[in-house]
Amino acid sequence: LEELEQFAKTFKQRRIKLGFTQGDVGLAMGKLYGNDFSQTTISRFEALNLSFKNMCKLKPLLEKWLNDAE
């Protein structure tokens, strides 16, 4: 859980630094990986307001997006 919290915090900082909005991330993930995510979902991930199971599902996809974006 602590690792997920740290990743969510780091993800948000890096996303902002790269100049992407939460909506941008959701759209890009849909185009790149075929998984559409709403701005709300990205927001809830960053705020740790998703279930643990959903957080765990999203984390590898967001890590991949972040690596591709950088």
Score class of each variant (00 low, 15 high):
Asn54Trp: 09
Thr40Asp: 04
Leu66Pro: 00
Ala28Glu: 02
Glu46Gly: 00
Ser38Arg: 08
Ser51Ala: 08
Thr41Ala: 11
Thr40Val: 11
Arg44Phe: 03
Phe37Ile: 12
Leu50Val: 06
Leu1Ile: 13
Tyr33Thr: 08
Asn49Gly: 13
Gln39Asn: 08
Phe52Asp: 13
Phe45Leu: 05
Asp68Asn: 13
Ala28Phe: 05
Glu5Gly: 11
Cys56Pro: 01
Lys17Asn: 15
Gln22Pro: 13
Arg14Asn: 03
Asp24His: 08
Gly30Gln: 15
Thr41Gly: 03
Met55Thr: 05
Ala28Ser: 09
Met55Asp: 02
Phe11Ile: 02
Leu61Ser: 07
Ala28Ile: 08
Leu58Gln: 04
Arg15Thr: 00
Phe11Ala: 04
Gln6Lys: 15
Ile42Glu: 00
Arg14Trp: 03
Asp68Gln: 13
Asn35Asp: 15
Met29Thr: 04
Ile16Arg: 04
Leu66Trp: 02
Leu1Ser: 08
Asn67Tyr: 15
Ala69Asn: 09
Arg14Tyr: 02
Thr41His: 08
Phe37Cys: 14
Ala8Arg: 04
Ser51Tyr: 02
Ile42Asp: 00
Leu58His: 09
Lys64Trp: 05
Glu2Ser: 08
Lys17Met: 12
Ile16Glu: 15
Leu66Asn: 01
Ile42Asn: 01
Thr10Asn: 13
Gly23Phe: 12
Lys53Gln: 11
Phe11Asp: 00
Phe45Asp: 00
Glu46Trp: 01
Ser43Val: 08
Asn35Ala: 12
Pro60Asn: 06
Glu46Cys: 01
Leu58Ile: 10
Leu48Lys: 15
Gln6Cys: 08
Gln22Trp: 07
Trp65Arg: 01
Glu46Phe: 00
Arg15Asn: 00
Phe52Arg: 13
Lys64Thr: 09
Asn67Asp: 14
Gln13Phe: 08
Lys9Cys: 06
Lys59Ile: 05
Ala28Asp: 07
Pro60Arg: 05
Glu70Tyr: 02
Ile42Val: 14
Asn54Thr: 12
Leu27Tyr: 05
Leu1Arg: 15
Thr41Phe: 06
Leu62Cys: 04
Cys56Ser: 15
Ala28Pro: 01
Thr41Trp: 06
Val25Lys: 01
Phe11Leu: 04
Glu46Pro: 00
Lys17Trp: 09
Glu3Gln: 07
Lys59Phe: 05
Ser51Cys: 06
Glu3Trp: 03
Leu18Phe: 04
Ser43Cys: 10
Leu48Trp: 05
Leu58Tyr: 05
Asn54Asp: 15
Thr40Lys: 07
Asn35Ile: 15
Gly23Cys: 07
Lys59Cys: 05
Lys59Thr: 10
Thr21Arg: 04
Phe20Thr: 03
Leu18Pro: 00
Ile16Ala: 09
Phe20Tyr: 15
Asn49Glu: 15
Thr41Asn: 10
Gly34Cys: 11
Ala69Val: 14
Lys9Leu: 07
Arg14Phe: 03
Leu50Trp: 04
Thr10Glu: 15
Ser38Asn: 10
Met55Pro: 00
Phe45Ala: 01
Cys56His: 06
Gln13Trp: 04
Leu18Met: 07
Lys57Pro: 02
Leu27Arg: 14
Gly34Arg: 10
Tyr33Cys: 09
Gly34Asn: 09
Glu3Val: 05
Gln39Arg: 13
Ser51Thr: 10
Thr40Tyr: 15
Lys53Ala: 15
Leu18Glu: 02
Leu32Thr: 13
Gly34Leu: 04
Thr21Trp: 01
Ile42Gly: 00
Ser51Glu: 13
Tyr33Leu: 12
Ser38Gln: 10
Leu66Tyr: 05
Cys56Ala: 13
Glu2Met: 12
Phe52Ser: 11
Asp68Met: 10
Phe7Gly: 07
Lys53Glu: 15
Asn49Thr: 15
Ser51Val: 02
Glu46Arg: 01
Lys57Thr: 13
Asp68Thr: 09
Glu2Gly: 03
Asp36Arg: 09
Asn35Met: 05
Phe52Lys: 11
Phe11Glu: 00
Lys17Asp: 13
Lys12Phe: 03
Leu27His: 15
Glu3Tyr: 04
Gly26Ser: 14
Ala8Trp: 01
Leu27Thr: 08
Asp24Gly: 06
Glu2Pro: 04
Thr41Ile: 07
Ala69Gln: 15
Gly34Gln: 09
Asp36Thr: 11
Leu18Ile: 03
Phe7Lys: 00
Tyr33Val: 04
Cys56Val: 12
Leu48Arg: 13
Pro60Ile: 08
Lys57Asn: 08
Ala8Pro: 02
Leu32Asp: 07
Glu5Pro: 01
Met29Lys: 01
Glu3Asn: 07
Asp68Arg: 11
Gln22Asp: 10
Leu27Trp: 06
Phe11Ser: 03
Pro60Gly: 12
Phe45His: 00
Phe37His: 07
Gln39Phe: 05
Glu5Leu: 11
Lys9Val: 05
Lys59Ser: 06
Leu27Asp: 05
Glu63Gln: 07
Gly26Ile: 07
Arg44Gly: 13
Trp65Gly: 01
Met55Glu: 02
Asn54Tyr: 12
Leu50Lys: 01
Lys17Ser: 13
Ala69Met: 13
Lys17Gly: 10
Thr21Glu: 04
Phe45Gln: 00
Asn35Arg: 13
Asp36Pro: 08
Lys12Val: 08
Pro60Cys: 08
Lys9Met: 06
Asn35Glu: 14
Glu63Ser: 06
Ala8Cys: 08
Asp36Val: 10
Asp24Arg: 04
Thr41Pro: 03
Met55Lys: 02
Leu50Asp: 11
Phe7Trp: 15
Glu2Cys: 04
Asp68Glu: 11
Ala69Leu: 07
Ala47Leu: 15
Thr40Ala: 12
Lys59Gln: 09
Lys17Gln: 11
Lys17Phe: 09
Gly23Ala: 14
Phe11Arg: 00
Ala69Thr: 12
Gln39Glu: 14
Met29Asp: 01
Lys64Asp: 09
Phe37Tyr: 05
Leu1Lys: 13
